[in-house]
Amino acid sequence: MEPDFRIPLGDWVAVGLDWLITTLDGFFTAVRHVFVNAYDGLDWLLNAPPFWAVILVFAAIAWWASSWKLGIGTVVGFTVIAAVDQWDNAMHSMALVVIATVVAVVISIPLGIWAASSNRASGVIKPILDFMQTMPAMVYLIPALLMFRVGVVPGIIATIIFAMAPGVRFTELGIRGVDKEVVEAGHAFGSSPARILRQIQLPLARPTIMAGVNQVIMLSLSMVVIAGMVGAPGLGGEIVASLSRIDAGLGFEAGISVVILAIFLDRVTASLGSDKTAAVLQAA
């Protein structure tokens, strides 16, 4: 039975959104240009060289960050992607994931630091994160489409919003988990809060923060398919196409390529949180 009252929530949102789009049109256009240019640049960098050269670079990164085994696995995996004729799409998706991750991390780590430093901030940020993470991801696509038009940008924006939450959460968790006495020691010797953050809290929270970054990347990859629905080029578009044509073979080829990308990105970023690479990064 329908209740005899109706909250016109949808109308309010639509009106609000309309107002936002007309007033902030210039802003959205500017954002769109920035993202389009960044994406095009990275996409060109990944697609212009011959595929084997890019594979070698990926393998070298994997070897440096982790082990020669991951290096070899990388060569095999990406060769499979190229062999099933998904190379261009995979590189489009890679560019999208990298851009979205970088932006998400740049926003989420400072937010996490802020949340860790103030209970009030944490109390405000937490429910917003819950909202962002549980709202079905496709819902973001609609306003993103209206603001940024069809193409790669709404996909990137929706990905950022969806993937940002673990970055904030893990950063807050990591900083709050730093040994209280060590932080107290910093204060006791007269360090400023900024110095304590830089020299004690962030270095000690780094493994947790890197686990958060890893989660951001994984969530970004999971958004690749959804981004394909709004016209972002890449594996997502291919999967959407195979769904509409009920083409199981094409779907599997694109799907396995997503899996290979995911494994590569996961292993490389996970090992960036380990001590071995930490020593290298610190020395640099």
Partner: peptide, 11 residues
Amino acid sequence: MVFQHFALMPH
């Protein structure tokens, strides 16, 4: 100050 659990910076 000197602390009970040393409070050294492990890194």
